[in-house]
Design a protein around this nucleic acid. Structure first.
Length: 573
RNA sequence: GCCCCGGUAGCUCAGUUGGACAGAGCAUCGGAUUUCUAAUCCGACGGUCGCAGGUUCGAGCCCUGCCCGGGGCGCCA
């Protein structure tokens, strides 16, 4: 299905070109956007005003001239010029309803497939292992997996790779910590907590004890050069970490195609530096191998340390080359926090120098903070991610106990899990990714207002309506009844449903799941208003069926949208 | 010192890339349930969009300067 703004934009462009062939021909597109206010119609076009300047004519006159030569197309009921020169477009009810039915028969609900034939590698989550996830890890996983699903929905072939930090300096520190402070008993029971504990102890010691620091580096070099004992430890640490990660990923509904980690590219580090050197991009500075990036206005980038070791930049360049070779992607997308902006600009610049043309995008998001400031292990104010999820589920369960006492216990547990985690995920996704996020329990666990549970509740109410309809009017063939709109709120709902495709496209293009959240919240709001103020099961036959069909389509759109966000949709709450 | 973000209602945040009188949620206050799930709905209250200039038909959005907060800037990732 072609998207509404595209259909309307094309018609407007025709109108402009017909009226002003020369000037309008130079306009690349004539943008049509959703109207700012329902009074002003359904969509509006503002192109007459900029054009008026070039033509040296009053904008209203330009708009009127544009419209004068056009016949009213079937999809519009009214077009008018308003204010300084806005062109307001009113969609025809009959056409909207026709489109809605078409949408309901489309498994993609009217969304386009711009990604067909395209491959994108997505790198998100990518935590450093040997530490439990904390609330700061939520954003990359959550935002990344939502962008991932949006792209798959739009037809892209997505390769989601969890690029674990499993080969860095921290292993020397952790190995030393484990050898000297490790408790085998705790290691069996809570490996990640234990690994983090010994890491912190060992790390503190590096700051006061230079010899300790030197020994940590030694252990890292031993690991990286294949020392069997250290490699065995590294394997254990990695295995424990991944097992625990998988548990949290299961709760969050995050799935990867690949979980490779930096270690996967360890044999490619030296060849990468040699390749860079072969291209004449490197020089030696203070014993380190560096790439100058002055032309790009960036600071120089170290690709090999003076002690012979490699760092993050080298690893990422090696990873880009490997991914291109293996998957031939059209694009590689990284989702990390804002602190890595410079790093990726450097890496991308070096890739360009190497002649890599694959699109490379860094999607960054604001750090999560606590009201009192940043959190850190040393401050002791780190909130483990699992604890946040547990707390959310507990609160959801409490509400369920009050509102749905009749629900069987097992079922209640499932619903509480879905609702609690839905609340946490939605609270994070609904913010503009680039805003700095201040974590508060109140916000993360909100169950009413603009929240995940509000959307899930709306969904469950619809599911209930559909069931009740089936019970009370058995044997009716819903699809054989026509859809029509009579109430204002009903029309608003239909219009909103028709905008699903354009919203999904915009959310994916902008890498902003929050765009979809806004849309779904508004959809649920319009539906709730409809539900509360317009009878359907009690309406006359015909009107009843039309409204129940609209309910069904709303359920599809809301359900699909929530699934794209990774939020589950219980049929009963 | 240089670079990147942010500053919008008491609080937490939107604002479709320059359009119509700046919008939600929370909080506060008032109303709605013999009815399709009240985790809901309807309404009220609430703003110098950090400050000062500038660009133009039009600025929360673009430009310049300043103030406040966060982050980054050669061997961590």
């Amino acid at each position: 299905m072609e998207l509404l703004p595209d259909i309307l934009g094309r018609w407007m462009k025709d109108a402009f070109v017909r009226a002003f062939p020369e000037e309008a021909g130079r306009m690349e597109t004539v943008a049509v956007v959703a109207a700012a206010n329902p009074e002003f119609g359904d969509y509006q076009c503002n192109a007459a005003m900029p054009l008026a300047k070039a033509l040296r004519q009053p904008p209203r006159k330009v708009a009127e001239t544009v419209l004068a030569g056009m016949e009213m197309p079937s999809f519009l009921s009214k077009v008018e010029v308003a204010g300084p020169g806005f062109i307001n477009l009113f969609l025809s009810d009959a056409w909207m309803v026709e489109r809605l039915v078409e949408l309901s028969r489309d498994p993609r609900l009217g969304a386009p497939e711009p990604g067909l034939g395209r491959t994108v590698v997505m790198d998100y989550g990518s935590p450093n292992i040997t530490k439990p996830l904390h609330i700061g890890h939520l954003r990359s996983h959550n935002i990344g997996s939502a962008i991932d699903r949006l792209h798959r929905f739009l037809g892209y072939r997505v390769i989601a790779d969890n690029h674990l930090g499993d080969w860095g300096t921290q292993f020397g520190v952790t190995i030393m910590g484990y050898r000297h402070f490790g408790d085998p008993e705790k290691m069996r029971k809570e490996p990640l907590e234990e690994l983090e504990r010994v890491y912190v102890l060992s790390y503190e010691k590096t700051k006061t004890d230079p010899e300790w620091l030197a020994r940590c580096r030694e252990e890292l070099v031993k690991l990286q050069s294949g020392d069997p004992e250290n490699v065995a430890l590294w394997r254990d640490f990695t295995r424990y970490s991944i097992e625990e990660l998988e548990h949290t990923y299961g709760r969050l509904g995050i799935k990867y195609d690949l979980v490779r980690g930096e270690s996967h590219y360890r044999d490619k580090l030296l060849p990468t530096v040699e390749f860079l050197a072969g291209k004449g991009l490197t020089r030696i500075s203070e014993g380190a191998t560096v790439v100058d990036l002055e032309e790009e206005g960036l600071p120089l980038c170290i690709v090999r340390k003076s002690d012979g070791g490699f760092n993050y930049a080298t690893s990422d360049i090696a990873t880009v080359r490997s991914r291109i070779e293996e998957f031939m992607p059209d694009r590689i997308v990284y989702v990390t926090d804002e602190r890595q902006q410079l790093h990726f600009r450097q890496v991308f610049a070096i890739c360009r120098r190497l002649g890599i043309e694959t699109a490379l995008d860094h999607v960054w998001f604001g750090l999560m903070r606590l009201p009192e400031g940043t959190f850190s292990t040393r401050e002791g104010n780190v909130i483990p991610l699992e604890r946040l999820l547990d707390e959310a589920v507990t609160r959801a369960k409490k509400v369920l106990d009050e509102t749905s006492p009749e629900m069987p216990d097992g079922r209640k547990k499932e619903v509480a899990e879905a609702v609690g985690i839905g609340a946490v995920k939605y609270a994070d996704l609904s913010q503009n990714p680039q805003s700095l996020v201040t974590f508060t329990w109140e916000k993360a666990l909100a169950l009413d207002g603009n929240s995940g549970p509000y959307l899930q509740y709306a969904y469950a109410r619809i599911a209930s309506v559909l069931d009740k309809y089936g019970e009370r009017f058995p044997g009716m063939d819903l699809q054989s009844f026509p859809v029509s709109v009579s109430e204002q709120v009903e029309r608003t709902l239909v219009l909103h449903l028709l905008r699903f495709g354009e919203t999904v496209r915009r959310a994916a293009e902008a890498y902003k799941p929050s765009v979809l959240c806004d849309y779904l919240y508004e959809l649920a709001g319009v539906y709730s208003s409809f539900y509360q103020n317009v009878p359907f099961l009690k309406a006359d036959e015909g009107v009843r069926e039309s409204r129940v069909r609209i309910c069904g389509i709303t359920a599809s759109v809301l359900g699909t949208g929530l699934k794209l966000l990774g939020i589950r949709t219980p049929e009963r709450i």
